[in-house]
Amino acid sequence: MSIGNSPEDDRPPIEDDGPSIGRALQQARIAAGLTVDEVSSITRVRIPIVHAIEQDDFSRCGGDVYARGHIRTFAQAVHLDPTPLVARYDAAHGGRPAPTPAAPLFEAERIRPEPRRPNWTAAMVAAIVVVVGFVGFTMFSGGDKGKGGTSVAEGPAQQKLPSASALPPKPPAPKPTPSDSAIAAVPADKVTVKVTAINDKSWISAKDHNGKMLFDGLLQKGDAQTFQDGQQVDLILGNAGAIELYVNGKKIDSKFEDGQVERLSYTKGDPQAG
């Protein structure tokens, strides 16, 4: 008696046309110059799970939904398109579950309002009020015509004031000359860094001189964050080309490229990249 293959052995193997999901994410992370700790800080995915994903072990993600989410955020942090990676995960794990059809909604019967009839009583009352008012106005104006004109007591002639157009124009107020202190309105005893996402979104990480995390997250286009410390502010810009920097009130003119990861440090005084 021969033993046949199980149904699972009859399934066609998944074609391997490139590196695995974990290997692709690991290569992209290395190319972006990020460590596992930095990816964990950017994505808020725990370090052991990041290591497991790079080894194609998704059992620690807590289910397919969380695994897809971790793959997507991981790929975005290392500037990789998450769509083919998520599709490859779905192909290897049975695909996405079919959505549950919504229950049919019953439309309530609409009650057609009855046509409103004209209110003749209100119209008649309004007409009577108009007629009475017209008669009263006519009688009052006719009585005033028989009276003489009202005399006005003469007094000293009022002095005619010159019109506004005849007055000489006021000289324009002098414009203040901007100074460095007015432009850099920041405390001189601290380092102040303002980060603004002007072209696109970007992952930002900021720490003080003791290594304490001041901010760690994603700035959408148009968002801004300001950091301040008594000695030093350390920055990591995930997409430096989208960022505009002001340090101690002065704009940093460095030209960063899109997708470039920059590590910067700023102290008190004139801005200098660390």
Rank of each mutant, 00 (worst) to 15 (best):
M1Y: 12
N5H: 15
S6V: 03
P7I: 02
P12F: 06
E15R: 15
I21H: 01
G22Q: 00
R23H: 13
L25D: 08
I30K: 10
I30A: 05
A31V: 07
L34H: 04
V36W: 00
S41G: 09
I49Q: 05
V50M: 10
A52N: 14
I53A: 03
R60P: 00
C61W: 01
H70A: 10
I71C: 03
F74S: 01
P99E: 07
A102T: 10
A103N: 10
A122V: 03
A123Y: 07
A126V: 06
A127L: 12
F137I: 09
F137K: 10
F140S: 12
S141L: 12
G142T: 05
G143T: 04
K145A: 14
G149F: 01
S151D: 15
A153I: 09
P169H: 09
P172T: 02
S181M: 10
S202N: 06
H209C: 01
K212P: 00
M213A: 12
D216F: 08
D216N: 15
G217M: 07
G217F: 10
G222R: 02
D223L: 13
A224E: 05
G230A: 12
A242Q: 03
E244L: 15
Y246Q: 14
N248V: 00
N248Y: 09
G249P: 03
K255F: 03
E257F: 04
E257Y: 04
G259V: 01
K268C: 05
